[in-house]
């Protein structure tokens, strides 16, 4: 099912009017052209997300214009804006409610790292502390073109996912978690401060 088709044979057959594809290619082709995002805006970046969906930039060209208000129907979560410590548990809960396979785009400096508000006491320093992120878009806010670029990157990622074999996609792996623990409000900060299964910051070596 997951094996590659011989390109020479395929083009030879195509010349004869026979189109050959694999289950994996067909499945990924369908998935990547109908990514349904969760309709969920947090802050300034959400306006650029709406602008991407609106007339000039028209995300419908990528098959992703169907913004779903319910996480149960969504494939993609665009974390568009500043994640505060009050909002972070709700975001993790929304992520847990989404069905597999699911993807996350961290849109803008705030969702990546806290951005300009990083010094604030109420701002989470990046949503990747609690949920896995597939594509990061820098910018404050990123332009609609940047969001479209992120979509194309995500489509490329989906296209290359394997359905079987040792490198098969995470969502097909029964061992791989699809839900992550929701952080709670502690005395001073969210508890835990980061999920060690997801958040692996690079170790800085001091010489």
């Amino acid at each position: 099912m997951g094996d590659e088709i011989d390109e020479g044979l395929r083009s030879e057959l195509q010349r004869q009017g026979i189109w050959v594809t694999s289950m994996q290619e067909l499945y990924n082709w369908g998935r990547k052209n109908s990514i349904w995002p969760l309709q969920f805006g947090l802050a300034c970046c959400a306006i650029e997300m709406i602008a991407t969906a609106a007339s000039r930039y028209d995300i419908a060209r990528f098959g992703a214009e169907v913004f779903r208000p319910s996480p149960r129907q969504a494939d993609l979560m665009i974390v568009a804006g500043t994640v505060t410590k009050k909002m972070a548990p709700q975001i993790v809960r929304l992520y847990n409610q989404m069905p597999d396979p699911k993807y996350v785009i961290a849109m803008g400096a705030c969702a990546i790292s806290g951005g300009p508000f990083k010094q604030g006491y109420n701002v989470l320093k990046g949503i990747d502390r609690y949920i896995p992120v597939d594509v990061y878009i820098p910018g404050c806010p990123p332009r609609p073109e940047a969001l479209l670029h992120a979509f194309m990157e995500l489509q490329r990622k989906i296209d290359n996912q394997k359905l079987s074999g040792p490198n098969k996609s995470d969502h097909l792996d029964r061992e791989h978690p699809s839900e992550y623990p929701v952080p709670a409000f502690g005395k001073h900060d969210l508890v835990p401060r980061a999920n060690p299964d997801v958040f692996r910051p690079p170790q800085i070596e001091r010489v």
Partner: peptide, 26 residues
Amino acid sequence: FGYLHRNHEQIGESAGYLQAMPYTDR
């Protein structure tokens, strides 16, 4: 309220007068 409390006033008090200007955009 408070799901988007980003400490704007505190940042305005700790940053200088000019540095607060880009924060007012947001």
